[in-house]
Design a protein around this nucleic acid. Structure first.
Lengths: 348, 348
DNA sequence: TTTTCCTACGAAAACGTTTTCGACAAAGCT
DNA sequence: AGCTTTGTCGAAAACGTTTTCGTAGGAAAA
């Protein structure tokens, strides 16, 4: 009973385990005739190699770890999908783990993956992550690491990202083109490279257009959720009623802000234009629909896996691996939260 | 170099591998003194058991498979989160796989998991799944299966579900209480037990309230996405303009339908009241907000894992395992898509 | 004929654990 | 003293592969 083993095939054919093993992998030092015989017998007996034994012998698990801040999240769940699909195609298994944006749990998750002996790690680091010693440790164990989306410049590894500065610049530029004169920004955590770059893009667009940049127009979000969008919107209304446009770090916060503005009777886009980030599905169905920056998530997952895979295969062949940084394109999606004002300008 | 092994600890302490192994697991036949010595040395040398060897020896992987129709999906991603969290607490690893609601890929995924030698499988079957031989096969290999949410009555295993009949009944009852007289239903695939039960609940509510049940008021959705919601809404408008309430199988379809109704200038809830299903986040932020049925997803994932875990531990102890069916509570969330009409009735 | 060279196969080690079974001493009991 | 019990430890087998190294025998070359 149980799984058929090489042993059993060997016995049934009067061959040795060695020959059977080699035959199944089409070694050149076994005759074509026996290769056929063995493969037939294997199919007949429904032979499946014992993963545990193979792993132990080859010292690799065909398993990679995927570490992300949140699972229930449109962007990251799309990444998961991309990674898993690509992994499955190549016979790899993915262990998905979540950090809840917390540094300590991130360290624990990495430790867990090392314990489980994955072949490599794909990670989008937590916003709270400040140092990356836990990743250096991974690398010191000779495991390849590929970072995507939420990266740290301090780690020397392959990366798959978007150009957040450019995206932030274009989002802000769009608001300027719509005629906004006093543009605020809801930014993310200070430690997040995404937030930093989008903020820099925002600043650059303002300065290039001759609009004054005012630090008091920048609002900080930490948790980046719906409620924080509402809170910051309230704060903005208390501070400065002359703001006529906002570039918001992420769609979820933008939707929170829009909900608050609507509740206070402020008209979007007539009084305030809003640009979000991420092109979440919900941004297309809320009223008014939200202008936003589309960023690839599914393909980012696919590409991230494939760069990791290529590092893995190169290592196996003892080839030199060159770290590469892939930058994926973003695109602005114009919708109602800015459209009206643009029309208004054109008619002038 | 590389990982420290039992061998190395044994050597450094002048003990045998056997004793070291036993000491680390605190066997009773090794003295307290050496246990301490060994554990110290293990910590000092940063010993981590080699998973591959342990797996091979114990013939278990501490890994389970999680098979779901879609990853990028509010409900299922929450389930994933629940499962993974609970698994991590218990030292288990989760392999997440997606079927895209397709029967053939479901079979392939199951095969993949068998190949990878998981200890058990958690599954929400695809809508297109008609027979469950692939699951019988899993069970015949002595692997426990637990189904959740999307189940098949033909499989004898533990299940974690909601009472879809009751939920469908209450959704429809709510529409009736709001004064709707001609209530339509957007149902899901014929092969999905969820859809069947919600449909039955809808029918039951109508009949109990003395409203006529009309099969032509039932619209079939297959893919259950936004676009289908729009299409069915269009179809409904062409067929029958006297419908004043709809119970829609899932929020995403409901949002599609609402978008179409709004585009056609039909007022919600004044002309048509709508109840969705699932309490997706977006249903709370669209205009008007959507009345819906809240169903537990995160806890469903947690409970599903734990019932699987208990089956696994019982099997290891050679205890008899009793299949159980856990039914989790649902709750109706009343929002604007039905609220107004209710108020109107009260004022009469 | 002898030597060399392939071809096709197998023995055995290794991967690192866990567990069974014994061994041996010391201690406890008639 | 003889016997059993108890407390510690280790040898060895086993899990199922993969790979290194041999070897037997026949064919080709000398």
């Amino acid at each position: 009973m149980g799984r058929t083993t090489l042993q059993q095939i060997a016995l049934s054919l009067n061959l040795s385990v060695t020959t059977v093993s080699k035959a199944l992998r089409s070694y050149p030092d076994v005759s074509e005739k026996t290769i056929q015989k063995v493969k037939e017998a294997a199919k007949l007996l429904n032979y499946k190699p014992n993963t545990f034994a193979v792993n132990l012998r080859t010292q690799e698990s065909k398993t990679i770890g995927l570490v992300i801040p949140e699972i229930v999240h449109q962007f990251f769940s799309s990444v998961i999908k991309g990674v898993i699909e690509e992994a499955e195609k190549n016979g790899y298994v993915v262990i998905v783990l979540q950090t809840s944006q917390d540094f300590e749990t991130e360290k624990k998750r990495i430790e867990f993956l090392i314990d489980k002996q994955v072949d490599g790690i794909l990670i989008a680091i937590a916003d709270q992550t400040v140092d990356c010693f836990h990743l250096y440790e991974v690398q010191s164990m000779d495991l390849p690491v590929v970072m995507f989306d939420k990266i740290s410049k301090s780690v020397s590894c392959s990366k798959v990202i978007i150009d957040d500065i450019k995206a932030g610049y274009e989002a802000t530029k769009h608001l300027i083109d719509c005629g906004c004169k006093n543009i605020a920004h809801f930014r993310g955590p200070l430690t997040s490279q995404n937030s930093i770059d989008r903020y820099l893009g925002y600043k650059k667009a303002l300065e290039e257009s001759g609009l004054k940049f005012d630090e008091s127009n920048v609002y900080h979000c930490i948790k980046m959720n719906f409620e924080e969008g509402q809170e910051q919107a309230q704060k903005l209304l208390q501070n400065n009623r002359s703001v006529d446009g906002i570039f918001i770090n992420t769609d979820m916060v933008a939707v929170g802000a829009m909900t608050e503005f609507k509740a206070q009777g402020i008209k979007i886009p007539e009084e305030i234009s809003i640009v979000g980030f991420g092109n979440w599905f919900l941004s297309s169905v809320i009223t008014p629909s939200l202008t936003t920056i589309d960023q690839p998530s599914y393909t980012m997952g696919k590409i991230a896996f494939n760069t990791l895979l290529s590092e893995l295969t190169k290592r196996k062949k003892n080839e030199h691996v060159e770290h590469e940084t892939v930058i994926l394109p973003t695109e602005i999606i114009e919708r109602e939260s800015t459209l009206a004002r643009k029309k208004f300008n054109i008619s002038l």
